[in-house]
Each structure stands twice: as C-alpha cells, then as structure tokens.
C-alpha cells in the first residue's frame, strides 16, 4: 500500500506527512509514504485543497491536517 501526501510543501503538509508516518509505525502497517508536490499532478488527482491524503491513487481526504487516529480510521476503511 502506498500512502500519498499531496501538498506543495507548506508546514501543514509536513505535519500531515509526519502524522501518516506515525500512524503506520504505531500499527506496523506495511506501507510506504510518498510525497506528491507537483501542482499539476495534484490537480490531475482531483485535488485543490491541500494538504490531501490518498491511498494508491484514491483520494481520501482533502484540505485537512488529519491526526494519527483519523488517518488510522481512514486506512482501516480502505483495507
């Protein structure tokens, strides 16, 4: 599973990335965290409100800095 963090590099995106990493570490989920910073690519995925979180190309949340628990809930839903 690839967790994608969509954002142009503002502090909020970094917080989201850190939260996602903390989430998969805590539950020892087999996943890699990938950052997407190219604005065109972000828009091709259908996102305008950054930061956004996607799993394997499917956008799950946009425009919000999710905390660790919120990310875990979302990950449970896709698996």
């Amino acid at each position: 599973m690839i967790i994608q963090i969509l954002g142009t590099g503002c502090p909020k995106c970094k917080t989201l990335e850190a939260n996602a990493k903390a989430a998969i570490e805590e539950r020892m989920i087999e996943a890699t965290v990938e950052k997407i910073t190219d604005l065109d690519q972000i828009m091709d995925m259908g996102v305008m409100m950054t930061p956004a979180l996607a799993v394997d190309g499917q956008v799950l949340s946009a425009g919000k800095v999710l905390n660790k628990n919120q990310i875990l809930v979302l990950l449970k839903e896709v698996r």
Binding site: T8, G9, C10, P11, K12, L39, M43, M48, M49, T50
Partner: peptide
Amino acid sequence: VCSCTVLPLFKGIYKK
C-alpha cells in the same frame, strides 16, 4: 486563511 493554499486554489479555478 492560509497563504500556502492560495496558489493551488487559484490554479484549480483557472485551469479546471
């Protein structure tokens, strides 16, 4: 309300 969201939103409204 956050300056880092202005540009993505601008580009999105403009292009798409």
